[in-house]
């Protein structure tokens, strides 16, 4: 079984995406043997009122039962965001909450970032931080977002010592620094932009943070799924005992999905 922790539904303003509707993504998952996917809404990133994107996401995911694990995106600079967050967690039973500070115009550690992370921490659900949706070198002239930086992540981890972090589409993470910031045991990192062989990013993170810190992620529908399937098969060859943990068990445990 595979659980993909790095997926999104909806339109992206700057590039056509295939497989970005729920039905299309289910077909993509079927073709690639992915049982379940953690999905957030791209519309929630770009709408002024992010919660309208969340509403769409829940409506779109609902007919597909447990195939999708929808994640709500909260904008702490928007009126009534606390109520939106409460609805997502308490009524919709969101397993995690995403924030996109670069797109919504604040910093992870400014007053808005601290407020939203503190509230997410109080709810006891993980926060989802996507380092970037696209490579910055191809940015559209209206695309002003920068990549999230590890230094800001480390500071946020220190500011919120009980908050758990789902880190998707990251590259350049230093396991020792993450551990020093108290993230060992409270972060889950997908390997969509990491390497198992050659650069050995994944084995290095396992050495410092433990295998429980790594999970399958593909960044579909932005990216091909095949690269992550290749990495998973290499995990199985190199570290067969870790295969199931990375394929799905870590994600299920981290998100409280049961087994």
């Amino acid at each position: 079984m595979i659980i993909d922790i790095n997926a999104a539904l909806g339109h992206y303003p700057f590039r056509a995406l295939r497989s970005n509707s729920a039905d299309q993504m289910i077909a993509l998952m079927e073709r690639n043997g992915i049982a379940r996917a953690v999905v957030s809404s791209l519309h929630a990133v770009f709408y002024r009122d992010a919660h309208r994107g969340n509403e769409e996401l829940w409506a779109e995911a609902q007919p597909h039962g447990d195939r999708f694990i929808p994640v709500a995106t909260v904008n702490p600079k928007y009126a009534g965001w606390e109520r939106d967050l409460a609805e997502a967690v308490e009524k919709w039973k969101a397993r995690a909450i995403a924030v996109v500070p670069e797109h919504h115009g604040y910093g992870l550690n400014d007053e808005h970032g601290r407020a939203v992370l503190a509230r997410i921490s109080e709810y006891g659900v993980p926060v989802v931080l996507t380092q970037r949706f696209e490579d910055r070198r191809q940015r559209h002239r209206w695309d002003a977002a920068e990549d999230l930086q590890m230094a800001a992540l480390l500071q946020a981890a220190r500011n919120q010592p009980r908050l758990r972090f789902l880190l998707v589409n990251w590259q350049g993470l230093d396991g020792r620094q993450l551990a020093n910031a108290g993230l060992k045991g409270r972060c889950l990192i997908d390997f969509a932009r990491l390497q198992v062989v050659f650069r050995k990013d994944v084995p290095k993170l396992i050495d410092t943070l433990g295998v429980e810190s790594i999970a399958f992620g593909s960044h579909m529908p932005f990216d091909y799924v095949g690269p992550s399937l290749v990495k998973l098969e290499n995990i199985e060859r190199l570290r067969p005992a870790d295969y199931e943990a990375i394929a799905w068990r870590n994600a299920a445990r981290f998100l409280g999905l049961g087994e």
Partner: peptide, 22 residues
């Protein structure tokens, strides 16, 4: 790996010849 174990749903029996995945 992905070829060996690719259920459409958790718990669904696997089909090694399904052509799913890589």
């Amino acid at each position: 790996g992905a070829q060996r174990e690719r259920p459409a749903n958790p718990g669904r029996p696997l089909s090694p010849s399904s052509g799913v995945g890589l």
